[in-house]
Structures are given as C-alpha cells and as structure tokens.
Simulated scan of single mutants.
Amino acid sequence: MFDLSENTIILLYKCRWNIEILFKQLNQNFELGYFYADSLEGIKTLVWIVLIAN
C-alpha cells in the first residue's frame, strides 16, 4: 500500500487499535474460544450475537 498518503496510514493504524480494544473486551467478557456451529453463517451469527449482547 505504497500509494496511500501518510495521514491515511496513520488513520488506518489508529482504527486498527480501536478494533483490537473491542476484541480484547469481547474476549474478556464472552468466550469465543469454541464455536457451536461448523458453517460460516453459524459462526457469523454467533459473533453478531456476542456483539449485540455487549
């Protein structure tokens, strides 16, 4: 991604850390170590349920 400006890269990096904080919070409050579904849609549904519950 050498065609992006330095400000865009800085913004992307800051957004990445916000996502990391969200996943850390979710991992501490809700265990996602085991998925109860085998399909992609089942896993997406489980993640959405955890996000909504949070």
Rank of each mutant, 00 (worst) to 15 (best):
M1V: 04
F2C: 02
F2Q: 09
F2K: 09
F2D: 13
L4I: 01
L4T: 02
L4C: 05
L4A: 08
S5P: 02
S5H: 08
E6K: 07
E6H: 04
N7P: 00
N7Q: 13
N7S: 12
N7I: 03
T8S: 07
T8K: 07
I9M: 12
I9L: 15
I10C: 03
I10H: 06
L11E: 15
L11F: 13
L12K: 07
L12M: 12
L12F: 13
Y13C: 09
Y13M: 09
K14V: 10
C15N: 13
R16E: 13
W17H: 13
N18G: 13
N18Q: 07
I19V: 12
I19R: 06
I19H: 02
E20I: 07
I21H: 09
I21W: 04
I21R: 12
L22N: 01
L22E: 06
L22V: 06
F23E: 08
K24A: 10
K24I: 05
K24C: 04
K24V: 03
K24R: 09
Q25C: 05
Q25T: 08
L26H: 01
L26Y: 03
L26Q: 01
N27M: 02
Q28M: 02
Q28C: 01
Q28L: 05
N29Q: 13
N29E: 14
N29T: 09
F30A: 02
F30G: 00
F30P: 00
F30C: 04
F30S: 03
E31W: 12
E31Y: 14
E31R: 05
L32P: 01
L32Y: 11
Y34L: 14
F35P: 00
Y36W: 05
Y36P: 05
Y36S: 14
Y36A: 09
A37N: 11
A37H: 12
A37W: 03
A37V: 01
D38C: 02
D38L: 06
D38I: 02
S39R: 11
S39E: 11
L40M: 07
L40C: 05
L40S: 10
E41F: 02
E41S: 10
G42E: 06
I43Q: 15
I43M: 15
I43G: 03
I43N: 08
K44G: 01
K44N: 14
T45M: 10
T45C: 09
L46S: 13
L46P: 00
L46R: 10
V47N: 04
W48S: 10
I49A: 10
V50K: 11
L51I: 15
L51F: 11
I52S: 10
I52H: 08
I52G: 01
I52E: 14
A53V: 01
A53L: 10
N54V: 01
N54I: 02
N54F: 15
